[in-house]
Amino acid sequence: MTGGRTADHQVSRLRDRLWAAALDADETGAIDVVSAAARDGWPAESLLLDVIAAVQRRVGEEWAAGRITVADEHVATAINDRAVAALARRASPPSGKRPRVTVACVDGEWHALPARLVAETLRGRGWHVDFLGAHVPTPHLIAHLHATGPEAVLLSASIPTHLPTAHAALTACQSTGRPVLVGGAAFGPDGRQARAVRADAWARDARDAADLLDAGIEARQASVPRHQIDDLPHLADQEYTFVTRNRPSLVKQVLHDLEEQYPAMRSYTPAQHERTAEDLCHILDFLATALYFDDPDIFGRFVAWTAGILTVRRVPADALRLGLTVLAGHLHDFPRAQSSLKETAATLDDPSSPSVPGTGTPA
């Protein structure tokens, strides 16, 4: 067995042990796994990104597949966060040779673990890091930048519906003259949305973010103030604005029409009605985000994800497609919304992909 294969096997064993501890809600055991590995000489960056981050991805996958509960997911995420903290306590303080950077989740983004992995990776490479955590309102972020003067700003967003807020935060940060690096699942696997909002850089993961900072990022030169519509001129058609402002009434109208056209809904329990309303809210949020970027793939990926989740949960097939069709009827004056809804509904015609509103949001 080669050295590389031995290392891969050892990483796999560490992942399995950490996964078992997280699934058992064994915080002490999880900390022991990473602490013992660190004492044995494993680099902290590898433990953070090749072990803890990999286990966290598995947490999301297992939840999506219906093999663990929401409570299990929350507990496992909290334990992984404790494992990160245990490694952070072992780290040496910054040497003073690297400048200061700010890492934050955009307003509304509560998935802080990816950003924390970035922050600890940067600290391990000697950067002075201000980690502001989850859900940072843009005015507070800008005040922090003025007070501390970091070399760069790193913004994290995991859920695509937070991208319009991320865009506003990014333009505000860039107005201070600092380069902004963005990352997180919200920006897509290829960083397409990062380019659309004119971020200074996009990172695939924490290691990529650290490499980009090590190489140096130049700030965009902005001689005049820039607004979001300057980057996305299609916003002038007001489709995004209409959908976001009228979401409550659209949900109410679609629910009423679904009860008329989908008789099974008449026997729903109050909890089922509530879940269906929540899912319609998520559908409208993702539709609005797709309209914001003029990118139907954002909506299509969400609906496909939702269909997969519902299939795992053995939910009946027809209502999701019907819900999209009914919603399209209420947005008949908006061609971009119509196109996204009709094209996405057409992808659900295969009866082997059953879907219906009623489960939740992407992890």
Rank of each mutant, 00 (worst) to 15 (best):
H273K: 15
H273D: 14
H273A: 12
E278L: 15
D279N: 12
D279Q: 13
L280Y: 02
C281Y: 12
H282I: 11
D285F: 05
D285I: 05
F286V: 07
L287K: 00
T289E: 02
T289I: 00
L291C: 01
D294Q: 05
D295V: 10
D295Y: 10
D295E: 13
D297C: 09
I298S: 05
F299R: 05
G300L: 07
G300R: 08
G300E: 08
G300V: 04
R301P: 06
F302P: 04
V303T: 04
V303E: 00
V303C: 01
G308M: 09
L310W: 08
L310I: 08
V312H: 09
R313S: 07
A317Y: 11
A317V: 11
R321E: 07
R321V: 00
L324G: 06
V326C: 04
V326I: 00
V326P: 01
L327E: 07
A328N: 06
A328P: 08
H330W: 15
L331W: 15
L331F: 11
H332W: 11
D333H: 12
D333L: 13
D333W: 10
F334M: 15
F334L: 15
F334C: 11
P335Y: 06
R336T: 12
A337T: 04
Q338K: 03
Q338E: 05
S340E: 11
L341A: 05
E343K: 13
T344Y: 00
A346V: 05
A346F: 03
T347P: 02
D349S: 13
